[in-house]
Amino acid sequence: MALPGQTQLSHMEEFMEGIWKQNPVFVMVLGMCPTLAVSVSAVNSLSMGIATTFVLVCSTLLVSLIRKLVPKEVRIATYIVIIATFVTVVDYLIQAISLAVYDALGAFIQLIVVNCIILGRAEAHASKNPPLRTVVNALGMGLGFTLGLLSLGAVREIFGAGKLFGFSLFGPDFQPWVVMVLPPGGFFVLGAWLLLFNWLKNRKVDGALVKPLEGHTHA
């Protein structure tokens, strides 16, 4: 977003926003329902991430294209219709590609429509930026979301099933940690990742000798 007085980001920076600085999962903590619910395995996480990225890119592109035509009173309604359309499209596409993935993701495909990342991007970014910039930002956000899901899904699959992408890592005698594929496991793993990312961020800031404003809110 180019706020007044702020220099505009280059396309590369725009792309990296979603992956690192404003990662939807680890920094903005958005879209937690699908994050916690479907991240029981790496494959599920990847499929969900790709589906969300598809909806994100297509809908923000369309929103950006028509951004000057849409009256502000009906903009949210318009965005929701557009997002719902692409969610429906992706729903059919996944059914056509693999029923197994479709069954595993269950209702969460349809629920992409209420994923706050997408409406958030449409409202905060796509409605104010030209199509190319929008698509680059949406791709970064989608990729960041996919990476976030994947890092949860991989850990939960390794502990919960002893596998990664379906390949057995520890042999047939592995003892699965059942709790990891149950909802509490999602919270534990997410918490651990958030801890790691905050620690990395704080360390970086400390290294640069710039104390963050909220440096002691968690102390």
């Binding site: 028509i66 035509l69 849409v70 009256p71 009173e73 009906v74 309604a77 318009t78 219709v81 557009i82 719902a84 359309t85 692409f86 429906t88 499209v89 059919y92 596409l93």
Partner: peptide, 19 residues
């Protein structure tokens, strides 16, 4: 407003049906 919504809805309908 109605025109915009109608246009968008039509476009989306076409997309869904073709998918």
């Amino acid at each position: 407003m109605v025109a915009t919504l109608g246009l968008v809805a039509t476009l989306c309908g076409v997309l869904i049906v073709s998918a």
